[in-house]
Structure formats: structure tokens, C-alpha cells
Design a protein around this nucleic acid. Sequence first.
DNA 1: AAGAACATCAACCGCTCCAAA
DNA 2: CTTTGGAGCGGTTGATGTTCT
Length: 358
Amino acid sequence: MEYILSSQIDTLRICIICNAQPPLEEIPHRIHKGHTHQQDPLGAISPSFEKGLKKGPWTTEEDRKLVAYIEEHGHGSWRALPAKAGLQRCGKSCRLRWTNYLRPDIIRGKFSLQEEQTIIQLHALLGNRWSAIATHLPKRTDNEIKNYWNTHLKKRLTKMGIDPITHKSRTAVNTNLSHMTQWENARLEAEARLVSRPRVVSNFYQRFHYGSTPLFNKSSMSSRSVPQPLCLDVLKAWQGITLSKLTDLSKLETFNNQTIAVETSALKETKTENHSNNLKISDGSFNTLESPKDEGIQNTLEVNDMIYQDNYLMEAFTNHFVNDVSNRNLDGDFEDDNNYWSNILDKLGNNSSFSSFF
DNA sequence: AAGAACATCAACCGCTCCAAA
DNA sequence: CTTTGGAGCGGTTGATGTTCT
């Protein structure tokens, strides 16, 4: 049984909403392949819930009730929802079921390489702040990202000899400081310098460290209905730099004792046709896997080498960024300079210490 | 063939945050 | 200012499928 696709989930949703009977094979009691039980094995009442509320997997009927109620009334108070919707569940369970599973604006199934790269980069930047990471993958839930990290990405990185916490190669000897220590030190240093300017400190800290913020990048606001936190701008800025710099390099390049493989377009075409060397394309746009077993091979080769080289450079970028910001005269800069980010990029591109990375 | 070990992911738990009273 | 309760977050659990021995 294959993974159930989002289209099948949509089918289920439609069936639920229309009170129609979905095809049995499409009832995703568990989205994961092979799970077939239709009855709730944990139907027993939990002793922790004095009111006799149910725990465990949701039934199709419960899903139908929840979706129907929210479609008609909105969720309102989650605590009050179960009684109104006729569910023997706590509000928390309803909220979780809706946000992680039934909500119409989420996609399920395999993560793309682009999504994986984004998760890894954001994790390097934000740590285990899954909800913050999820805001940059709008069709994925924090729970799904967290699970995917714990079950796939973390193990893969460990296999590659990269510490999934620090995002640093375990063999790296150029420093005793972990990635996060360096990052935190840089941030604290920046904050210390700014401590005499409470307003700016507050803005900087909220916008760059926490990612959720009362202030947003105005240039992004002009083109989107939903304002984006600035940490995403950092990521985008970084991706913009790396994409422009790494598109057509043809040989192995070294950086701080780490070696990366960068493929030419011609080489990519060759490898597309010939899988015998087990190397896959690094552009993240497609998947040439022929069997699940190939995935591990793919996932431990150049794709992630590239991602991690990317991350390593991003670390330098973020550290540089913090120092840059902390050295600026910040009064009004964040709020008034619409070209702030493009200026940063221009500046970094011309900065000798940073341009040497390329 | 059997069962132990591992992988996956939905769901739960406990905690924190924050707004309202 | 303090208390309270709702919402959300991150860590963890446990049921089930898959792979290994």
C-alpha cells in the first residue's frame, strides 16, 4: 500500500462534508502505509479524563462531525467545541486533529528536496522551534515537520557525520565552539551592544531570534497579503546568494577543510541517464529513485552535502549579519529602509570577508 | 515461519505564554 | 498587580507496519 496522497485526503474530506461513504481503501485512519485497522483500539475511556472523554485514534464518524461543525460554525472556543459538535473528546484533541490532519490547507505525503533543504536550514537557524519552521512551510504542520525531522532528517544527518543539534560536522576541528554556541554568542553580543537602545533591541530580538514579530519587512508586505517574519528574509537572502553563486561550478571546491561536490549542468544530464554511480541531481527538483532502498543512498550523497555546505556558509552569513546589524546606527533602519535587505546583500557581496567564501 | 528489532507518525501530555477579568 | 483559563508548543508515547535474524 502506497502512501495516501493528498488528493485522497481531499476525497475523504469531500465525503465527510457531503456525508457520503468514502471507498474503504481510502479511509486514512492512519496515513502511514499499511495501517488498516478501522476500529479504535483505544476506545476505552481514559482514567485521566473524569468526564469519560475518549482518547486514541479518531474514527471516520468523529472526523465527519468535527469537519462538519467547523465548516459551518468555525472552531470558536476549542473547549466548547466538542459538546456543540457532539464529540466525546476534549477540545485539545479536537484542535490537534483539525490543525494536524483535517485542515483543508495542508498537504501530506513525501517531503520534496526543496522542503527538506528549507527545514534543515531553518533548523540550523531556529533550532527545535517547529512552529516557527512550519510558518515557512505553510502547507505543512509543525507536528509533521517535527516527526519528519526526528524520523528521517536527524538520522540521515547523523549518518553523514553531522551533528543534528549543532549542524556541524563531527570531524570539524577548526573550532571548539558549537554552531549554536557561536550563534548564541554572536546574538548576545549584538544584544549587549544594543542594550542602550531598548526599542531597537526589542525589535531585533523579536524579529530575528523569535521570528514572530510585530514588525515586518515592508517590501514583502507590499507583495503579499500575509506579512512574513524577517528570519525568512534572511533565509531567502541567503538562498538568493547561494543560488546565484553555485549554479554552474564545475569542480570540487574546498572551504574550511570541507569539500563539496558541485555538479555542472552537463554532468547532471549524464547522471540523470546513468544511475550506476548512485549520484543524484542536486537541484532538488525531482526524484529519480527507483526503489525505497535507493532513498538512503540518495540522501547521503551530494544532495545533503550541498545542503550542508549551504548551511555552513549560512552560519557565516548569519553571524556576519548579526555583527552587521549590531554595528549599524539602527534608529529607524528597520522600519524606514525598504531596501534594507537588498542593501545588506549588496554589502555582503562586496564585503571582502564574506565574498571570500565564494 | 516466527518473533525481535526497528521505523513511522498520529495523538497525547505537560508545560508556557498571554490576554482577559 | 494577581489570577485564571484558553491556546499553542515541543517532547514523548504507543499502535502498527516493515525489516531483519
